[in-house]
Write a protein that binds this DNA or RNA. Sequence first.
DNA 1: GAGAATGTTTTCAATAGCGAAGTAATTTAA
DNA 2: TTAAATTACTTCGCTATTGAAAACATTCTC
Lengths: 179, 179
Amino acid sequence: MEDRALSCLLALRRVLGAAERNDRALARATGLTTAQLLVLRIIEDAKEITPKGISTRAGVAPASATALIEKLAQLGYLRRRRSESDRRKYWVSLTEAGVAALHSAPDPLHQRFSSAFDTISNWEQAMILSALERVAALVADEGPDQKPAGVGVHDISSALSFPPEPEPADPQPADPVAT
Amino acid sequence: MEDRALSCLLALRRVLGAAERNDRALARATGLTTAQLLVLRIIEDAKEITPKGISTRAGVAPASATALIEKLAQLGYLRRRRSESDRRKYWVSLTEAGVAALHSAPDPLHQRFSSAFDTISNWEQAMILSALERVAALVADEGPDQKPAGVGVHDISSALSFPPEPEPADPQPADPVAT
DNA sequence: GAGAATGTTTTCAATAGCGAAGTAATTTAA
DNA sequence: TTAAATTACTTCGCTATTGAAAACATTCTC
């Protein structure tokens, strides 16, 4: 049994390594890392979101969110505007370029995984998803800095689909966050 | 379906994050990272092994193996001796201190995972292991720098159990690798 | 209101890991 | 034997990520 757990850990480690390598390959090819791509995807899905929100959804530390946003902003992929109602935070949204980059930059790992994933039987897909969610719950300690908003066995599927921010909307596209 | 693949990737990412966080926590607590612990475990299992071997087993780049070995050597956890038959390489083995460190430094993630893993039913353990191996194979591109010696669906379980190095044995504990 | 507690973002220093290039030893080929 | 190719390991420069603490803004409490 212990042996099986160790095997799981080793498999995990291998997957982890592949993901890291994939990151570098992607970065070399497109100038975007997996994490950056994930952030773009999150922003697109949310239309507008705060650094905190990104940090939470992407499962990275706030400090990392800052770095990611900064990088993507430098590339001209996103725009920030200070919140009117709470001047501590600001809203991030995609630019045209950001949308284009997101849709034109395929993630090799996702590609490889997705296409390979498509070739396996339906029940096995379900099994794998279930197992991964189970493992995620097993190893979940806490968020990188904050709680992952409730790590249940089946909450992963909602990670990228959340309500349109229960916020006062904070409309006017003004105050572009002086850098 | 695409949705399911994405869910898998997100779960993976969460697991990955947990592993990373775990690494830091472990490092703070014991002064050893998960990778270092893994290396110790690999060495213990092999009795004696080369940097290349470590790199391959642990799934890290040769450069990383060098760094890991150097660090562990500084801590006095392992000993190196140049190979007699091939003076490019050298053999690494655990010191008393290394064995002690390995056995006294529990890995929180492994602990958490293992104990949680033990509580779930037998068939589910099997399912998870199978799924992880499947995923590992799915995302496997190549080794970090070299081939992982054949990434089949069921080769993970053998990652830590391999024959005692089909090598000329290279006996005398001499030539401690002048640093 | 003043002050404390809380929340959001950033800055900073540190670290693991990697690829590429370099060095040295071995093997292969001619 | 000598040259070329291969293999093992190391050095170097770089990136992503993090935790801790700083810098502000907001909210709560009295």
